[in-house]
């Protein structure tokens, strides 16, 4: 039964056995091809194994099937990892501005060299409680030539 597969999947996730997690997610998808949890687990596990290409192709095939799930954040992250920065920003556009979307946006802007915009997003993010944010903020400020602030 599918519950046993999810129990197995959950165990692999807890043990950080991400390649195994991908295999079990695929087993779920072979019996329930549109299962959102299984697709999400597969995409996240692929990202955690650094298989960014495969994560993106999994997202694309879900999109081709017109599944009603929003993979925009994962997609934006994968595109960022592939240095497809404009496409990554595009994928973030429709999403609500939360600390996680703003964090990714700021990293993309940093790589694009858009330091003023990057610093701007960081300053909004400072209200949230992301511990190591200052490290990125300092980097952005240095490159923006604002190290005196």
């Amino acid at each position: 039964p599918i519950e046993d597969l999810f129990t197995n999947l959950n165990r692999h996730i807890e043990r950080s056995e991400f390649e195994q997690a991908v295999k079990v997610a695929d087993q779920v998808l072979s019996v329930a091809p549109n299962d959102e949890d299984a697709i999400r687990c597969k995409v996240v596990a692929l990202i955690k194994c650094d298989s960014i290409d495969k994560a993106l192709s999994t997202i694309h095939s879900a999109q081709r099937q017109n599944l009603p799930f929003d993979f925009s954040y994962f997609k934006a992250y994968c595109l960022y990892r592939q240095n497809k920065l404009d496409e990554a920003l595009e994928s973030l556009k429709g999403l609500e501005r939360t600390s996680e979307t703003m964090l990714l946006e700021s990293q993309i802007l940093f790589r694009l060299g858009k330091m003023d915009a990057c610093v701007d997003v960081y300053q909004k993010l400072q209200k949230s409680k992301i511990d190591t944010l200052e490290i990125n903020l300092v980097a952005g400020l240095i490159l923006a030539g604002k190290s005196s602030q």
């Binding site: 949890d37 954040y73 990293q107 190591t132």
Partner: peptide
């Protein structure tokens, strides 16, 4: 060059499977 940590990576999370097991 300053290093930008990939903090967004930490936001990539598995869904809760609690109700699926």
């Amino acid at each position: 060059n300053p290093i930008v940590l990939d903090l967004a990576y930490n936001c990539i999370d598995f869904p809760s499977l609690e109700n699926r097991m």
